Simulated assay, not measured.
Amino acid sequence: MTSPTQRVCFQLRVKPELLDEYIRRHSPVWPEMLAEIAASGRRNYSLFLGEGGLLTGYYETDDDEAAQAYLAASEVATRWEAQMAPFFDGLDGRPDQAATPLTEVFNLHTQLVASGAAAATTESTH
């Protein structure tokens, strides 16, 4: 039996005076870093920037501990995270290792499945 997909969401705060440079560094991200993220098992990865530099990240993975360990051991990720660390307020350590995940309190698909409504919803959209 396969493990369910883990949805991981986290927040960090980008220093306001560095917002433009932070955005520039992500437009685009190094190709070798993109490859490492994918190789770690993270997928559907997005970053969203809000007011005051509030950065919210989201990704899915089958094993977040394994993904974290892979990136912690990656020379490419180590270089990338060393360059990204100065952008964040109140962060001790590498951004990819030190960000605290948020607690998921609602997921539409999970609740639809639990209520038995997922099949009916899927059928009504086709």
Results as ranks from 00 to 15, higher is better:
Tyr22Lys: 09
Arg24Tyr: 10
Arg25Ala: 06
His26Arg: 05
His26Leu: 13
Ser27Asp: 12
Ser27Met: 10
Ser27His: 12
Ser27Glu: 13
Pro28Asn: 08
Pro28Thr: 08
Val29Ser: 00
Val29Tyr: 00
Trp30Pro: 08
Trp30His: 07
Pro31Tyr: 01
Pro31Ser: 04
Pro31Val: 01
Glu32Pro: 06
Leu34Ser: 10
Ala35Lys: 14
Glu36Leu: 03
Ile37Thr: 08
Ile37Asp: 06
Ser40Pro: 07
Ser40Leu: 09
Gly41Gln: 05
Arg42Trp: 01
Arg42Val: 00
Arg43Leu: 04
Arg43Gly: 02
Asn44Gln: 11
Tyr45Asp: 09
Phe48Tyr: 14
Gly50Met: 06
Glu51Gly: 09
Glu51Asn: 07
Glu51Lys: 09
Gly52Gln: 06
Gly53Cys: 07
Leu54Ser: 05
Leu54Arg: 14
Leu55His: 04
Leu55Gly: 02
Thr56His: 13
Gly57Thr: 02
Tyr58His: 11
Tyr58Asn: 08
Glu60Arg: 00
Glu60Asn: 07
Glu60Cys: 15
Thr61Pro: 10
Asp63Gly: 02
Asp63His: 05
Glu65Cys: 06
Glu65Gly: 12
Glu65Ala: 14
Ala66Tyr: 04
Ala66Ile: 04
Ala67Gln: 06
Gln68Cys: 10
Ala69Met: 04
Ala69Gly: 00
Tyr70Met: 02
Tyr70Gly: 06
Leu71Val: 03
Ala72Asp: 14
Ala72Thr: 02
Ser74Pro: 01
Ser74Tyr: 08
Val76Pro: 01
Ala77His: 08
Thr78Val: 12
Arg79Phe: 11
Trp80Cys: 07
Ala82Thr: 10
Met84Cys: 05
Met84Thr: 05
Ala85Trp: 09
Pro86Glu: 00
Pro86Tyr: 04
Pro86Leu: 05
Pro86Arg: 03
Pro86Met: 03
Phe87Val: 02
Phe87Glu: 01
Phe87His: 03
Phe88Thr: 01
Phe88Trp: 11
Asp89Trp: 14
Gly90Met: 06
Gly90Gln: 08
Leu91Ser: 05
Asp92Thr: 10
Asp92Pro: 00
Pro95Thr: 09
Pro95Ser: 07
Pro95Trp: 05
Asp96Gln: 10
Asp96Pro: 08
Asp96Asn: 10
Gln97Tyr: 01
Gln97Lys: 07
Ala98Asn: 09
Ala99Phe: 07
Ala99Ile: 03
Thr100Glu: 13
Pro101Glu: 07
Pro101His: 06
Pro101Ile: 10
Leu102Asn: 07
Val105Thr: 13
Phe106Lys: 03
Phe106Met: 09
Phe106Arg: 03
Asn107Thr: 09
Leu108Arg: 11
His109Arg: 15
His109Phe: 04
Thr110Val: 11
Leu112Asn: 13
Leu112Gly: 15
Leu112Phe: 10
Val113Lys: 15
Ala114Phe: 04
